[in-house]
Simulated scan of single mutants.
Amino acid sequence: MLRFDDGAKEQSSVKQILIKYIKEHAVEIIYVKGRNKEDYLIKTLGKDCPKIVNLEAIDDCVKLTKEIPACNNHTA
C-alpha cells in the first residue's frame, strides 16, 4: 500500500514515474482503496490511465480489520 506522502520523489514527477511503470509492465488494471486515490490517478494519468478498480466499491470485497491477519508490509 502506498500513501500519498510515501517516497522521496517530487510530486511533479509522479505522472512520468507512473506512466513509465505502466508501460514497462503492461499494467492493465490498477487496484485502489478509496475514491480519492481513484480520482487522483484518473486526473494525473489522463488518457494514459489504465482501468482502475476501487476495492471499496465492491460490496463483497473483504475488509481488512485487526482480526484478519495481514503481512508485515500492510499492518496498520
Rank of each mutant, 00 (worst) to 15 (best):
E10N: 15
E10A: 12
E10D: 15
Q11T: 11
Q11M: 01
S12Q: 07
S12G: 09
S13Y: 06
V14M: 11
V14I: 08
K15A: 10
K15I: 08
K15N: 11
K15T: 08
K15H: 10
Q16P: 02
Q16A: 14
Q16W: 01
I17N: 04
L18Q: 09
L18G: 08
L18M: 15
L18R: 02
I19H: 05
I19S: 06
K20D: 15
Y21A: 11
I22S: 09
I22K: 03
H25G: 07
H25A: 08
A26M: 02
A26V: 00
V27N: 05
V27P: 02
E28W: 00
I30P: 04
I30V: 14
I30F: 02
Y31G: 12
V32I: 06
V32E: 04
K33I: 09
K33S: 10
K33A: 10
G34D: 01
G34V: 01
G34A: 02
G34L: 01
R35C: 03
R35I: 05
R35T: 08
R35K: 15
N36M: 07
N36W: 01
K37F: 10
E38S: 12
E38R: 10
E38I: 07
E38Y: 12
E38Q: 13
E38H: 12
E38W: 02
D39F: 02
D39K: 13
D39Q: 13
Y40C: 14
L41H: 08
L41A: 13
I42A: 03
I42P: 00
T44E: 09
T44P: 02
L45C: 03
L45R: 00
K47M: 11
K47Q: 14
D48A: 14
D48V: 01
C49P: 00
P50V: 14
K51Y: 05
K51N: 07
K51C: 00
K51L: 11
I52H: 07
I52S: 11
V53N: 06
V53D: 09
V53H: 03
N54K: 10
N54R: 09
L55Q: 09
L55Y: 05
L55S: 11
L55M: 15
A57P: 00
A57K: 15
I58Y: 09
I58T: 06
D59W: 01
D59N: 13
D59P: 07
D59T: 08
D60E: 14
D60T: 14
C61K: 09
C61S: 09
C61H: 13
V62N: 05
V62T: 11
K63P: 00
K63T: 02
K63Q: 08
